[in-house]
């Protein structure tokens, strides 16, 4: 088999292998690019309500349970913290409930993981580390191969157009480097 044929076969098959990860990195890339405007992995909800003045010892678990009962909160109390003399922070299944004891004002913070997107970001941003680092490196090498092998697939009739478009693709990041660096 000629080298051109090998180049074509490898480009095609490695390309197929890369489709899933390319989509993952592309979707997650857009999501994390806008991290200033939104939270790409969690939808953070903040609900304020009032349960009325709370009397009783804030260090006492019964006080915390009474607050949860007033809130109609079915979750299990995991732990609590006193940020100051007048406040009590309760943790229920990863959620935070902060109560101003004298007024009964409650701030309920809940972080809901964005389905699929959070998992994509988890991989894209290499949170797992370990073996995933090597796999992601392998994917980067595969992408580099696809880029270079693609150049060798240019035919005479598309050579000029291919070279111009490739040149534009190289010039664009260089332009932004001049603009912002």
């Amino acid at each position: 088999m000629s080298w051109r044929r090998w180049n074509y076969v490898l480009h095609r098959d490695i390309g197929f292998l890369c489709i899933g990860l390319t989509l993952l990195y592309a979707i997650s890339g857009v999501a994390v690019n806008h991290i200033k405007e939104w939270n790409p992995s969690y939808s953070v909800e903040r609900v304020e309500t009032n349960v009325g003045p709370v009397v009783g010892n804030p260090a006492d678990a019964a006080t915390a349970l009474m607050i949860l009962a007033r809130l109609g909160e079915p979750g299990k109390l995991e732990s609590s913290y006193r940020p100051d003399r007048n406040s009590l922070q309760l943790f229920v299944e990863g959620r935070s409930i902060t109560v101003d004891l004298p007024s009964g004002h409650v701030v309920h913070d809940r972080a809901i993981p964005r389905p699929v997107l959070r998992e994509m970001n988890f991989l894209h941003l290499n949170h797992p580390k370990k073996a995933w680092t090597w796999f992601a490196d392998l994917y980067a090498v595969a992408l580099a191969f696809l880029a270079v092998s693609g150049l060798f697939m240019l035919r005479r009739d598309t050579l000029r157009r291919g070279l111009i478009l490739t040149g534009i693709g190289v010039v664009i990041p260089v332009f932004f480097l001049f603009l912002y660096l």
């Binding site: 995991e78 732990s79 990863g94 959620r95 935070s96 972080a111 941003l125 949170h127």
Partner: peptide, 14 residues
Amino acid sequence: DGEIVFPMEARGKV
């Protein structure tokens, strides 16, 4: 950033 990433679910854990 990125070296260690604490999950939101860690709130309330030791």
